[in-house]
Design a protein around this nucleic acid. Structure first.
Lengths: 153, 153
DNA sequence: TATTGTTATACTCTATAACTATA
DNA sequence: TATAGTTATAGAGTATAACAATA
């Protein structure tokens, strides 16, 4: 959304509008939930990746689909807040190895709890079966850039 | 979303992530489709509203959920491209009445055709029944700010 | 010479408040 | 005094290219 978070207006008739609009609002709710834990969306996504193990900035940038220079800013903020740490890779001193800290894991837990609350609110009117159906249908929407029609410019 | 358009990374396990991510990508595809017709998303939404009849800027700004000062920029661009026109309301000379032009309607038609293409691509793997199910499930997601839990800050 | 991370710059969006002209 | 629209300004976010250290 940024630029994202467009389309928060008008009752849409087309399914694409409906999906875009509900997605934008969901994005917004999650951003607020992360905010309760003192995190931006990108900081939270970064911590989620780091929770799976240490990574180089290169790998992180690719996984987050952000420019390396953007990641620098994200990590500067996380490091200042003591939620993550950079250290040189002894094997290749050009590389930084990025690790989540204990405080980072705690912040991540708080953020994920907040998202769980958002989820319960968003999907309160759907039962278990419907949630499974929604998940399966969404998973089959062709949003992967794998097919040739969707090659990014 | 602008800003929006976050969350274009990582396989999400939570449904909220899935919805936010697919929504962001859908938003992005639509933005590109509108671009083919020479329109931004907001310009297109504005023309869609104007296609329903002339409106004051106040009413437009509220329907689009944008600040009046943002609408000024949108309308300046649309007017420069001769897709919409402002004229004073004789009944209250503070007001502007905004109208779509013939060229505006043509641009809107092109944009909507482009969105239809995007829709066919996105939902190519779903049959008619599934599309109806998806639409109904999405419509029941609590994204309206009507319930008290979601009061914006 | 290529790669990793960093810095600098510019451009877009957005939010806010101050301003004008009308009422 | 209040309202409709406009302008100006500052802040966040993003994209790009140039740069330093290391390989």
């Amino acid at each position: 959304m940024a630029a994202g978070d467009d389309l928060v207006a008008e009752p849409p008739s087309r399914l694409a509008f409906l999906l875009a609009q509900h997605g934008a609002i969901t994005n917004d709710r999650m951003r607020k939930a992360f905010g309760l834990a003192g995190l931006t969306t990108r900081q939270c996504l970064t911590l989620m990746l780091l929770a799976g193990g240490r990574m180089s900035q290169q790998a992180l940038a690719e996984a987050l689909a952000v420019d390396p220079s953007v990641l620098v800013a994200i990590l500067n903020d996380l490091e200042r807040a003591r939620l993550a740490e950079r250290r040189r890779d002894p094997a290749d001193r050009r590389r930084h190895i990025v690790e989540i800290t204990a405080a980072g894991n705690q912040a991540l837990t708080r953020a994920q709890d907040a998202v769980a609350v958002v989820e319960r609110e968003l999907f309160a009117d759907l039962d278990e079966d419907e949630l499974v159906t929604l998940r399966n249908l969404l998973a089959r929407v062709r949003t992967s850039p794998s097919d040739p029609l969707c090659t990014e410019e």
